[in-house]
Simulated scan of single mutants.
Amino acid sequence: MSFLSDNIRYLRAQKSMSQQKVADELVITRARYSKYEEGASEPPLEVLLRISRFFHVSVDLMISVDLRKVPMQELLKLEDNRILLPIMVDSTTGNNFIEIIPHKARAGYLTGYADPEFIQNLEQISLPFLREGKYRAFPIEGDSMPPHQEGSFVIGGYLERLEDVKDGRTYIVITANEGVVYKRLYRKDKETFELHSDNTFYDPYLVKAYDILEIWEYACSIATEEFMPEDLQEPDAKAMFKEIKYMLNDLAKKVKS
């Protein structure tokens, strides 16, 4: 918890409160709270949660990000759970910027998605028809979700509650195991989702709700390459040709082995 002591000292100063006043709010002694600010000891989980709720900053940001370097006034707070979501806002207009996750940063998104400094350094765009809500652009890899080609970007709107996922709609899903994927979702039960590719060559698979770190609902997409005539083939025929290609590649590997 290398940042915790500095962060709570900084946040307390922002509120212009004494250590005794904060300790009273947390229902602990001032001496105990003072040790947390000095870094002499670390708070147990229940006290850490109280500190997080008191300062309205999520636990992961509290312990993993130097909040003194973060423009807190430009970050959006989620309404219900008091977590600070690192999405940048135009301080003059109040409109949300759309951060672009480049292909080279896609792998690092799992470690940086909750870090305001990581998000702040991303390229940003603004689309006039996407004003309300929180949006982010993710790069597409592979051919599992035609007609979206590799190199395209899908812009997703942040979904605060998994209960709002609609069967058959497409979403950017971020999990610790799979990373960043773009799939069509179906709810299997209260705790499980089935993720489908529109390219039937790829089998669907299950993801537990508790493994989902973030989920973004499809809002629009940006193609970075022109569609070619072969892209306009009948979907079934195109899928068949791709499946044959994969079968031949697999057969070639087996023959070589």
Rank of each mutant, 00 (worst) to 15 (best):
R131L: 10
K183W: 04
I172D: 00
E234R: 11
E191D: 13
A209Y: 01
L159H: 03
K242Q: 13
L159G: 03
E123D: 15
Y186L: 12
T224V: 14
E132Q: 15
Y218I: 09
Y171T: 00
V165T: 08
A219P: 01
A176Q: 15
D115R: 05
K134M: 14
L127G: 11
K183N: 06
D198S: 06
A176H: 14
T224P: 05
N177L: 13
G112P: 00
W216K: 02
G151R: 10
H148E: 12
P229F: 10
I244R: 09
Y218A: 09
L122R: 04
L162Q: 09
P146V: 12
P146H: 13
E225P: 01
K190H: 08
E160N: 06
C220H: 08
I222A: 06
L130S: 06
Y210N: 11
P229D: 13
D115T: 06
L122F: 07
K183H: 09
V165S: 04
Y113V: 08
P139N: 10
F201T: 06
A223N: 15
D203H: 14
G112D: 01
Y171D: 00
E217Y: 13
V173N: 00
A137E: 01
S221I: 06
L159P: 02
G133W: 13
P204H: 10
S144W: 00
R136Y: 03
P229A: 14
P147E: 12
D167A: 06
A176D: 13
I174R: 04
G142R: 06
E178L: 02
I125D: 06
E123T: 10
R161W: 09
I174P: 02
K183P: 01
P139Y: 05
D164F: 05
A176M: 14
G179A: 10
V180I: 14
A209T: 08
I174N: 05
I212G: 11
P229V: 10
E226W: 11
D189L: 04
K242G: 05
E141A: 14
L213C: 02
S144C: 08
T175Y: 03
L122K: 02
E214P: 06
S144V: 02
S221H: 09
M228G: 05
R187W: 06
N177S: 15
E214G: 08
F138Q: 04
E150A: 07
G156E: 00
A237N: 15
T200P: 04
L122A: 03
Y186T: 10
G156Q: 02
A137M: 07
F129C: 11
K190C: 04
S126Y: 15
